[in-house]
Design a protein around this nucleic acid. Structure first.
Lengths: 213, 213
DNA sequence: TCCAAATGTGAGTAATCCTCACATTTGCAA
DNA sequence: TTGCAAATGTGAGGATTACTCACATTTGGA
């Protein structure tokens, strides 16, 4: 996850792969590039982020930037990938020990709060997941992330309702997860007060479904 | 709604307004421009749509195109606006006469099927609503549309549950609507079979909430 | 010490959105 | 009918920006 080469693209094509940094020096520079991109996205959004500006802020030439990232989307993708890896670990931990309905209620509720807090606090994450639909690579990353997270939920449900149809449980988990992200996106795009109500309503709906039967 | 000037923009700024076509001749040309844009979006997606290509296919100079649309997004926005107006009328009609739980169940279920069918059949609509998050003007249009549609649902709920907190009903409607769009987007981005299952699961969840208590 | 591979550079290329100065057409009032 | 202002039409060219490439420099190891 750390040393993986950045080598993907938008429209199904695989962009010309770029070198993965192997020397200490270049690894540090790549970090600077990512940090610069992150800062610029936080300030102006990923759409307004200019590659030249990223290079300048990272104290790196534009050529160096393109040495490690095949294109603009690849930088954003790399940042997104870090977020997903981080949050997936968090989610797995939160759901691993759940064995009864009350535990699920508590864990899920807490998870939603944490996610919502992240959306509110992290402008970069917010920006990236907002534009997620427009970029194929990002959409696929989010889909994969969602599936992985749903899997953790499915595992819990299988424990709680061993007699239920596994495929139905998977569908439910996947849908609930994806709807949660939609609810968050909606919540942060309206006022804080209405946003809180929406998240609370989502939580109630999701739990009603998760704890049904 | 028909003769309204196209004059909005993406980042909060209001783009320099463009003339609304007043002569028969120009109205026909604007129609051709929209038709050309629609065809190109269906073929390649709105991202790959080139303004020069739109002009060429509409048998119009690039200058004429920009006479009526301040920028590329405005064309897409104009198409989106037509879809929303059309579907809103359809939704309002479907929910207007609902007076009992069974009626709501039937009307809502049918509505979801129609929407899902539209998403599956209309590449232009699909493309536009996919990229919705990346463009501020589109996001606001979708939000307004969602609110308007939710309003119809709220009206029904108020009839069915007059003693419930109106604000809670509004929140529920809004959320259910937005989640529905998320479910559709998800459904069309996975295989047809899984997509159908997801939509069915959404329908079940939403109805459970709508008919609760 | 030497060299191939890794890394660094930034002027230049290409693609594309959009403008603008000017030409043509239309509707209408005299 | 004629004159004319407003509406409409045009496309070469300006401006921006993602991205390339030929060449320079640095690094790690033989």
């Amino acid at each position: 996850m750390e040393g993986s080469a950045v080598s993907d693209s938008q429209d199904g094509q695989i962009a010309s792969p770029r070198r993965a940094p192997s020397q200490q020096r270049s690894r540090e520079r790549v970090e600077r590039m990512l940090a610069a991109a992150s800062a610029l996205i936080a300030e102006q959004g990923s759409d307004a982020m200019r590659m030249g500006e990223v290079a300048e802020r990272a104290c790196v030439s534009i050529g160096s930037l393109y040495q490690f990232f095949p294109d603009k989307r690849a930088i954003i993708w790399a940042l997104a990938e870090r977020y997903t890896a981080e949050s997936q670990a968090c989610i797995a931990a939160a759901l691993a020990e759940v064995n009864d309905a009350e535990g699920l209620r508590r864990a899920f509720s807490e998870l939603v709060d944490i996610y919502y807090g992240m959306f509110l606090a992290e402008p970069v994450m917010r920006d990236i997941w907002s534009g997620t639909q427009a970029d194929k690579a990002l959409r696929e990353l989010e889909l994969a992330d969602s599936r992985a997270n749903a899997e953790f939920l499915t595992a819990v449900l299988k424990r709680l309702r061993p007699s239920a149809d596994p495929e139905a449980l998977e569908t439910t988990s996947f849908l609930i997860w994806q709807m949660g992200e939609a609810a968050m996106r909606l919540a942060i795009s309206v006022g804080r007060q209405e946003g809180d109500r929406l998240v609370a309503a989502y939580k109630r709906m999701a739990l009603r479904e998760l704890l049904a039967e």
